[in-house]
Design a binder for these strands. Structure first.
Length: 496
RNA sequence: GGUCCUUUGGCCGAGUGGCUAGGCAAAGCUCUGCAAAAGCUUCUACAGCGGUUCGAGUCCGCUAGGGACCUCCA
């Protein structure tokens, strides 16, 4: 079954066909490392991590490029031009690159917590100043940019005359141009819709580079165009990012790259929707962000507890990437429990065993399982419908648990089906969804201690000394360690 | 103001016009020394109004609520 992807550019699902057979070039807008990442930022990186993993599973060799924006951006016209990064650096009395390094490290740490695979290339904006300058020169040479007082702007009106500016973001160019006339005459830009490719740096600006137009720094949009072109070519397969980047960022990227490279840069535009909180987008300007470090530690007024990175990953995958997802403690707690139940079932599954040539005793059940398994790939092929995959896995969990508890005889399903179950659960949970055990990592010392306590408890129960057995269980429970009595007289434990 | 999206059971959240999404919570039962876990069962919703259709949560229109983008923003 072929993969189809919802293309923001055409606003329809399209069959995915890579430019180069067997290969996929994917660019995803990365973080601006002038501050800590929050929950909202986690969504694209987790969503596209799954896209990356799934494309790889399909056999594609994927080059995944995700940038680090470490140059900061100037504020919009009408206000003093200032570099976000250097401004904060001054306040914190840090070297700009020191600050950038700190938040880059923190970002990488968070990605590791989420078990996101590192991109193939993670280019930085500051490391590609030359490429950006070259690209700007190309745009000027083509006649689509102009220089004013050491700054360079893209001529949107001229571009729009012969190109479809606004198509990606559903913008009407005339509306964009119309607002121009309301502006005061002090603008350097010819038109309000124009955007900066290069900004002259005021004297106090710390980050600055020499350019043909004087000392300055690159505009925001040009870095992605320059780096994507360098590593993925003039035209590549997939460009991803948050919906809020559609305009002006991605729209501008299309314009710049199209002029410079004489063709539209991207075949499939993918945009993830926002994470909301009380129905509102989580964002700095709304003052409602929960940083990832706060989420992991529970240290935030809106949080009633800490959340495991895998809980958050699962929470995000339980909804479709193009839907808004509302944060709440209740929703996250529901995800936490759900993930644990599914993971427990997966652990149970791994312990089941049947001869490979075992025939199925219950054809109906066996057929149902096979059908649920077969659907998994078609769900993913349908624009990465992770919630449906999860729903099917949950449909199989009771069967697995019942076999494990002996409520359903193991040979109800065939050896082949059991093997398929095992490989599918591993494939989807671990390889494609990138999930890991939601329990705290066990260490061997604790393992040994727990085995001792379990042995003692088993002995006391054998002697009907329930006072002792209950004491062990209750005291451990108070410490956050749960002991479960299994049907066969064994005990298992987990950290709550 | 412009453009666009959205409104699903107690909560979260899938839904390609025709059959039970799924999860969490709740209730009952089974299992169990007790508990937890697990299993089984129950809870059948689609903002309102009108229209298209043999048939609509799913298409169209209107009304109401919510939101996003238009400025940095995942």
């Amino acid at each position: 079954m072929p993969l189809s992807i919802y293309n923001s550019y055409s606003r329809t699902k399209e069959l995915f066909k890579p430019i180069t057979e067997g290969h996929v070039g994917m660019y995803v807008c990365g973080p601006t490392v002038s501050g800590e990442s929050h929950l909202g930022h986690a969504r694209p990186y987790i969503s596209f991590d799954v896209v990356y993993r799934y494309l790889s599973h399909l056999g594609y060799k994927v080059r995944y490029v995700r940038n680090i924006t470490d140059a900061g951006h100037f504020e919009e016209e009408g206000r003093e031009a200032e570099d976000k990064v250097s401004k904060k650096a001054l306040l914190e009395k840090l070297e700009p690159m020191e600050l950038v390094q700190k938040y880059t490290n923190l970002f990488h740490w968070a990605m590791k917590q989420f078990n996101c695979i590192e991109p193939s290339i993670e280019p930085t904006a500051t490391g590609h100043i030359v490429e950006q300058i070259n690209m700007i020169e190309g745009i000027i040479a083509a006649g689509y940019a102009y220089e004013v007082n050491g700054s360079v702007y893209f001529d949107v009106k001229k571009y729009a005359a012969s190109h479809d500016y606004g198509k990606l973001s559903g913008r009407v160019i005339d509306d964009l141009l119309e607002t121009t006339r309301e502006l005061d005459g002090q603008e350097e830009k010819r038109d309000r819709a124009d955007f900066a490719l290069w900004k002259a740096a005021p004297p106090e600006h710390i980050m600055r580079w020499k350019s043909p137009w004087g000392e300055g720094f690159p505009g925001w949009h040009i870095e992605c165009s320059a780096m994507a072109t360098k590593y993925l070519g003039a035209r590549f397969d997939i460009h991803g990012g948050g919906m809020d980047l559609q305009f002006p960022h991605h729209e501008s990227e299309i314009a710049q790259s199209t002029i410079c490279n004489h063709q539209p840069p991207v075949n499939y535009w993918m945009h993830n929707n926002m994470i909301t909180i009380n129905g509102r987008k989580m964002g700095k300007s709304y003052n409602n962000v929960i940083k990832l470090t706060e989420l992991f530690s529970g240290n935030h007024p809106l949080l009633t507890q800490a959340y495991h990175p895998m809980t958050i990953r699962f929470f995000i995958l339980q909804s479709h990437y193009r839907s808004t997802l509302d944060f709440s403690n209740e929703a996250l707690q529901a995800s936490e429990k759900a993930l644990k139940r599914l993971w427990d079932s997966y652990e149970n599954l791994k312990k089941l065993d049947l001869p490979a040539d075992q025939a199925a005793d219950d054809q109906e059940l066996n057929g149902r399982i096979e059908k649920l398994l077969a659907e998994l790939e078609s769900f993913m092929d349908d624009d990465f419908s992770t919630p449906k995959v999860i729903a099917n896995l949950f449909d199989m969990a009771p069967v697995i648990n019942s076999i494990k508890d002996g409520l359903i005889p193991a040979n109800a399903i065939s050896g082949q089906t059991l093997a398929n179950l095992k490989s599918s659960f591993t494939l989807y949970l671990e390889d494609i969804f990138g999930l890991q055990s939601p329990y705290q990592s066990d260490n061997s010392l604790l393992q040994g201690v727990m085995q001792l306590l379990i042995d003692i408890r088993k002995e006391s129960r054998a002697k009907k000394d329930f006072a002792t057995s209950d004491k062990i269980r209750n005291q451990l429970s108070a410490l956050g360690i749960l002991i479960k009595d299994e049907k066969d007289g064994n005990m298992s434990w987990s950290l709550s």
